[in-house]
Nucleic acid binder design. Structure first.
Lengths: 171, 171
DNA sequence: ATAAGAACATCCTGGCCCGGACGATATCCG
DNA sequence: CGGATATCGTCCGGGCCAGGATGTTCTTAT
């Protein structure tokens, strides 16, 4: 994950690599990988907290809910691939969600081996609530940025995310 | 952790954002949490691959190596707190690194309970090699960005990372 | 000086996740 | 039509990580 920053070279004369592991952020061009992971971990943690507060077991539950809400009709395997979770993990995730009445496993009418998970009305409502809370949390963390900066950040990250993995897993 | 927010969404109503009613206004901003996590996961994966290619078990090993290279003299517990890994996990991490002669556990002369891990010369060399490979990988992923954009991205992320967690764990 | 309590590292146990095997079903091909 | 092969979902075993218990050592108070 994150990496304790290291100067991509340049002005650092020190062969022992750049100092500063976490604190004292320091102005040098901190390693991008580390910066990204740090910021991402923070926001993921925030979202995870929100999800737990709303009764879910973690972020992943919410992601599954969201994915199903965006587009249904996929089998578990397809969904797993899309989300980047192992099929077996998805099984247990869905078990829990189904217990909580947030999703239902319907039989695929065209393939009786396959199950097609669907969000229930309750699941949809919960997903929406959590999304709203997440937006709020994001806004809080972005308070120090001007609208222009926020747009810029989004734009840059979008380009970066797109260029790296066209449609890779997101977990 | 990210959220499968929608693709370039055009006409699809995005459930991840406020469900409002009709509003088509505003090209809704792709969820920042998802963008960040996606980009971060990609880069972390890249670094992990690099670390494995160089004989390590994963990114974490490299992070430990780096942290020790930056500043030694810390006990395992202190190091664990700094890095955000559980002390027990750090124990096994160090076991492996010590087997590979990349670090050594010295006894703290002032507290015989404590061990002070130190990087060996071999460990230092390996750390440097991997850091160089990482810089290369980063540069590759940033190829589509102009120098100005790269600086801007770094600056924005630095602000975000700083504002979120002053000195939280980095794992 | 000594005894009580805290601190450090390790070991052990439980939980989570992935890879492989299994039963059920679908598809292909003769 | 019928058998061989591939696919879907679930179950089982191994590996990894966090939390609790343990042995050793340091610190503090009497």
């Amino acid at each position: 994950m994150p990496v304790p920053s290291r100067p991509s070279a340049k002005l650092s004369v020190d062969p022992t690599v750049t100092p500063a592991v976490g604190r004292a952020a320091e102005a040098q061009p901190a390693d991008l990988t580390w910066l990204l992971n740090r910021a991402a971990a923070r926001m993921r943690g925030e979202l995870d907290t929100v999800a737990r507060l709303h009764g879910l077991a973690g972020v992943r539950d919410w992601i599954v809910l969201t994915a199903l809400g965006v587009e249904g009709g996929r089998t578990q395997l397809q969904l797993g691939r899309e989300l980047g979770v192992d099929k077996t993990t998805l099984t247990s995730l869905l078990d829990r969600l189904e217990d909580d009445e947030l999703v239902v496993r319907r039989l695929d009418p065209r393939d009786r081996r396959a199950r097609i998970p669907e969000v229930t009305e309750a699941g949809r409502r919960l997903q929406t609530r959590i999304a709203a809370a997440r937006d709020e949390a994001e806004a809080r963390l972005l308070a120090a940025f001007s609208p222009d900066e926020q747009r810029l950040l989004r734009a840059l990250l979008t380009r970066l995310a797109d260029s790296t993995a066209a449609s890779g897993p997101c977990l």
